[in-house]
Simulated scan of single mutants.
Amino acid sequence: MQRIEELTEVGDRYFDGLADKFSRSLYQAPRGELRLAMLDYLLPQMLDLSQQPVLDVGGGLGQQAAWFAQRGHDVTLTEPSADMLNYAQAWHAESTELPPESITYVQAPLQRLNCELTGPWSLITCHAVLEWLGDPRAAMASLAALLAPGGQLSLMVFNRDALRFSNAMKGNLEKVLSDRLEGQGRRQRLTPISPVTHRQVVQWSADNHLTIEAVAGIRVFQDYLFHPPANEAERETLLTLEKQYCRQDPHWRLGRYLLYTLTKPETSE
């Protein structure tokens, strides 16, 4: 059995040895299906899309890169895990819906992208990455440096406040009271090591002269249901409910993920 890597020297979590688990647990399960459905619904609303090149940072199994490529964008998918990158390449190669050579693959962590790639980029996506890094605040600065003046950053983070609330609902009251919410990055556990709050995103955006143009919650209700949808009709009803409230205050604040559109001023200060 392949050894599963844990934390790197700088405290980041890569996912060598976990590609199949990710595919099974996150994307072939109702929560993953809903996450992708909500991104399909929200991204055209929250981004100005004009078939511009896309830098997909920490692109994982390649779902988001495929979404953009199918819509006419040339995509550079970066991912530090060789296993995840190989999985994405193999899946994309089998797809009949992707334009040939529309996706370029780069094995590199976020922290090295300024050295590995020629930028800046007018559109960057970084979905579910910061929460797996030892220093998400520094990662935000790296993303801002990669972004072109006037460019858009689509950022999605695992919501620490939602994690706190769900733990309270499960009865983990001592854990919540002591705010011990982070995962340890060990073995096959998939609790993020650095869950992020909205307050942090607001502060880090300001620190890097980025403007929050839009925000939405992903999986606002699903993770709190006592009884998951039992059939297709109930799943469709849940999706309709998620779409209705994902951008309404206060509901978006308890989404399991928070999705942002950040922009960089035309003239950087």
Rank of each mutant, 00 (worst) to 15 (best):
residue 75 V to P: 01
residue 198 H to D: 15
residue 221 F to E: 04
residue 232 E to I: 10
residue 239 L to N: 02
residue 67 W to V: 01
residue 133 L to A: 09
residue 145 A to L: 13
residue 169 M to P: 00
residue 113 L to T: 03
residue 45 Q to D: 14
residue 25 S to M: 02
residue 149 P to H: 06
residue 181 L to M: 13
residue 153 L to C: 09
residue 229 P to I: 08
residue 261 T to L: 12
residue 249 D to A: 15
residue 145 A to Q: 15
residue 161 D to H: 13
residue 108 A to I: 01
residue 86 N to H: 12
residue 2 Q to G: 01
residue 100 P to I: 08
residue 91 W to H: 14
residue 255 G to A: 05
residue 124 I to C: 05
residue 21 K to A: 14
residue 119 G to A: 08
residue 63 Q to F: 14
residue 30 P to D: 13
residue 192 P to W: 02
residue 256 R to Q: 14
residue 31 R to E: 11
residue 89 Q to C: 08
residue 185 G to P: 07
residue 161 D to S: 15
residue 21 K to Q: 14
residue 138 A to E: 14
residue 180 R to A: 15
residue 158 F to W: 12
residue 70 Q to M: 13
residue 247 R to T: 15
residue 93 A to G: 02
residue 52 Q to D: 02
residue 190 L to Y: 00
residue 262 L to Y: 06
residue 191 T to E: 13
residue 144 A to T: 07
residue 60 G to W: 00
residue 189 R to G: 13
residue 133 L to Y: 04
residue 78 T to F: 01
residue 141 A to K: 14
residue 208 N to L: 07
residue 229 P to A: 09
residue 172 N to G: 04
residue 39 L to N: 12
residue 151 G to D: 10
residue 264 K to C: 12
residue 41 Y to D: 12
residue 133 L to E: 05
residue 87 Y to T: 10
residue 226 F to S: 15
residue 113 L to H: 03
residue 68 F to C: 02
residue 240 T to Y: 01
residue 87 Y to E: 11
residue 16 D to Q: 10
residue 61 L to W: 00
residue 253 R to G: 06
residue 200 Q to Y: 08
residue 62 G to S: 03
residue 208 N to C: 14
residue 135 D to K: 13
residue 48 D to N: 14
residue 185 G to L: 09
residue 207 D to H: 06
residue 192 P to G: 06
